[in-house]
Design a protein around this nucleic acid. Sequence first.
RNA 1: GGCGGGGUAGCUCAGUUGGUUAGAGCACAGGAUUCAUAACCCUGAGGUCAGGGGUUCAACUCCCCUCCCCGCUACCA
Length: 678
Amino acid sequence: MSKNYKRYTVTSALPYANGPVHIGHLAGVYIPADIYVRYLRSKGEDVKFICGSDEHGVPITIRAQKEGVTPQQVVDKYHEIIKNSFQEFNISFDIYSRTSSEIHAETAAGFFTNLHGKGIFEEKTTEQYYDEKANQFLADRYIVGTCPRCGNENAYGDQCESCGSSLNATDLINPKSMLSGEKPVLKETKHWYLPLDKYESWLREWIIDGHKDWKTNVYGQCKSWIDGGLQPRAVTRDLDWGVPVPLEEAKGKVLYVWFDAPIGYISATKDLTPDWEKYWKDEETKLVHFIGKDNIVFHCIIFPVMLKAHGDYVVPDNVPANEFLNLEGDKISTSRNWAVWLHEYLEDFPGKADVLRYVLAANAPETKDNDFTWKDFQARNNNELLAIFGNFINRAVVLTHKYYGGKVPAKTELQPADLVVLDELKAFPAKIGDLIERYRFREALSELMNLARLGNKYLAETEPWKLIKTDEDRVKTILNIALQIAASLTIVAEPFLPDTAKRLAQMLKIKPDTWAAAGGQDYLVADHQLGEAALLFEKIEDATVQAQVQKLLDTKKANQLANSTVAPAKENITFDDFSRMDIRVGTILEAEKVAKTKKLLKLKIDTGLDQRTIVSGIAEFFDPAQIIGQQVSVLVNLAPREIKGIESQGMILMAENADGSLAFVQPSSAVKNGSGIS
RNA sequence: GGCGGGGUAGCUCAGUUGGUUAGAGCACAGGAUUCAUAACCCUGAGGUCAGGGGUUCAACUCCCCUCCCCGCUACCA
């Protein structure tokens, strides 16, 4: 398992180019990956750090349509924003490519052709909605219609955004194409499937038996998927935005985005170097994917199966997926604008990329979901970066300037306390490096701070500012050692805080050196002239973080306002339309939870006409025992429908609150069962 | 409901194969200090390791049950 690798290919998840990047992405994926890569480079390893924008898929075409622009314009816009954000946070990709590029289309199509040639794919024909006027098949999101559950007339084919139900396009009442407005027809279409099920035994051997070293969340999730049984997965779609399927018979079809996206790692590497094959096809290359937990199945199951089926490629050695980062106690949400966007952070905190890098790395969701708060951000800047790291550097450099004109004094006689500190200093780089190699970035970072703490403690205990009056030789040794610690910090801090490391190196007037030089007791030679002391960090005031908190509170308020808006009235209907509905008052006689469901209650209702069974999705809000005997409104002439094997004969009328909670619609005083409602 | 992950100090989190007294940072209290951005340094207090049962000489750790949070997934007429 611990093979000796000659080189590394490190990828970080391709951000989807339909929006900017926020702190959750950074904390979960890009900062860990960047720390890992910078460390490897510092060790002198041969490493390529690969990323790029994921620019295909239906959501981008929808956004384009909404904004009245082309998909290419959408991805061009976000590709630039995302790319710039990464640059400003010093995420040191060797290449940041994109999947709308020519080289990617070639690579992805080539990959498909290769698998197709090997007879890997299964072909299946199914019925899908087709717009005859626009002459194309419709993605689920391209079909609107009336939600069969809540009656919202603008439900999408995959989901109703009004009631949150997930739907099949064929469930919609009065489906309409978003392209032409016409009613779509069902039409047969052929697609190519990757038979994941045929790779089950290989996956078991490779992951379940072979990669017990993976993080528990990753390993557990993979095991769950494999044990649950894998299904063939379509690799093609009827869509005009994507990589065209390279087959004569597949005109108008593109590669499904999940198939082409991971190949983006390969095409980006091609884009980077003609030597790309070495980084993908050589057994001595260690492939590592940094991703968030939502991406585990693609990087641990699907992409490896693709690589395995192809046969020439190596499969990942590790996939250190992180959990999610919350923001001030709530989930980060793009649609609710509950996020700290990277480009906005840099406007509010210019020059402070490292501060956010530090806070996010220190609080990265490595084993479970974590919370980012502005208060914590302030505390970590003021109490850790500034008070421990910055302060130590400042003390050492200021004292050296004060006593020795900024020239590194030579060590004199070493005392036991000095030797202890030098030993500890020497041990740090290996300790930090080991943690990084085991993907434990938080702990590695805390060891980095411990090195600065060692410096502070050493100064506090030796008190050179007192000794300068009595034992100047001793002071020379002390400051020399303190400066050696500072010098090593330039190296071991670099993966985490690249800007800071650079500024520190400038202050000490040293050239960046390799990891091997860190921990040395003579990294700074005697008489070396230091630069002027400068502050590495500045204090973040209460008012500053308060402003950020206020910004979020405003967002929350805006969201509440948006939620409280009442849905617009539906189209007028005739009295006749209304009178076709037979709504009666009934009494709940029995209520029990339907086994193996979360939302369903099986109710027995006395409708006055009869006693009938109705299945209703209200279990989340009502305790069965508490609702027996209550009167409710029942739509009695709704066609019966089987739900979870139970025939439901009618529907209970419910009022839905803004927060989604439900209430019965019931008479204000008891009336006879069977009384009509009109 | 099924599957996966999690529940450890006021807060954010460590705790590797079961092994003495369960750790760190922040916050808090006391002390020391003045080179340093009132920062650093030392000491202390603070825990029914979600709850219950079991295995064991020994359980935060392994097994069973229950509750809660997150994710994937099914159900919603």
